[in-house]
């Protein structure tokens, strides 16, 4: 290693953003290029905020945690769905192409309505623990659970509903109602949980069709891009196998 490091001149980045504001009747979708100077440790979160603050205050995008845990900032980064906040510009070429996640309702520019989609999915698939007991006894010791089982449930619960798996899904493109890897993974999560009293027959009612587990074509784009590295292909296969035995 050299003792005196010379700092190379910072790169000039060209960030090409697909712009459109559906609220504005004059707006039509188009690409717009912003030039900015790269900084050390720059993420797309930093870059996009800098563009908004210094070049175009109308630019729309969504960030919340900026730490890769809340799932707000899913977008197409050079054509591939990913979390913008934890994407470092140094890992990308100087020309960076950004577009909103497809298949979700566009709010404007890079902002899409994943919230509405996810809530709809949750309502359809009833993604909550179904118990027979009305209200838990809060004073008594909690019900026991095997430590390993608790960890396995958490493994599937790490999904942050960012929507990347939907954006990367071939079936979702053809079937608007398809629940996607995010939905099927949730079924796998609740099916694994002994606190949920639902039977496989009950789960079949929710996903035993082409908008559910039989719609999946096993292209596995979801598994390739999942920012949380969830074991989606295993879960999809497992659930399909379980559901196939129901009828």
């Amino acid at each position: 290693m050299q003792l005196t490091e010379s700092t190379p001149a910072p790169r000039s980045l060209r960030i090409h953003v697909l712009r459109h504001n559906p609220q504005d009747p004059q707006s039509h979708p188009h690409m717009q290029t912003f030039n900015i100077e790269e900084a050390d440790g720059m993420t797309l979160f930093i870059a996009l905020n800098e563009i908004r603050e210094t070049q175009d205050p109308a630019l729309q995008f969504d960030f919340v945690c900026r730490a890769g845990i809340c799932g707000s900032c899913g977008m197409l980064i050079n054509g591939r769905p990913g979390l913008a906040c934890r994407t470092l510009t140094k890992d990308l070429d100087a020309d960076i192409y950004l577009a909103p996640l497809p298949l979700f309702e566009l709010i404007g520019d890079l902002s899409v309505d994943t919230g509405k989609w996810m809530r709809g999915m949750s309502e359809r698939l009833e993604t909550w623990i179904h118990t027979q007991q009305d209200e838990p006894d809060l004073d008594a010791l909690e019900a026991r659970m095997e430590p390993e089982l608790a960890q396995n449930i958490y493994e599937l619960e790490r999904c942050i509903e960012c929507g990347c798996c939907i954006a990367a899904c071939g079936t979702a493109r053809m079937r608007e109602e398809f629940v996607g890897a995010v939905g099927l993974n949730k079924i796998a999560r609740f099916r694994l949980d002994p606190r949920d009293a639902r039977s496989d027959a009950a789960f079949y009612e929710l996903i035993g069709n082409e908008n559910g587990v039989f719609g999946c074509m096993s292209l596995l784009g979801c598994e390739d891009i999942c920012p949380k590295d969830l074991p989606l292909s295993t879960q999809l296969a497992f659930i399909r196998r379980k559901m196939a035995f129901i009828h």
Binding site: W128, I129, T131, Q133, P136, L138, D139, A140, E142, A143, R144, M145, E146, P147, A150, Q151, I153, Y154, E157, F190, D193, R195, D196
Partner: peptide, 18 residues
């Protein structure tokens, strides 16, 4: 403690004693 236990009943996969 009641809050943790309510959440346990509602589905939080708290880490458990081995």
């Amino acid at each position: 403690p009641k809050a943790v236990r309510e959440l346990a009943a509602w589905g939080v996969p708290w880490n458990r004693v081995q």
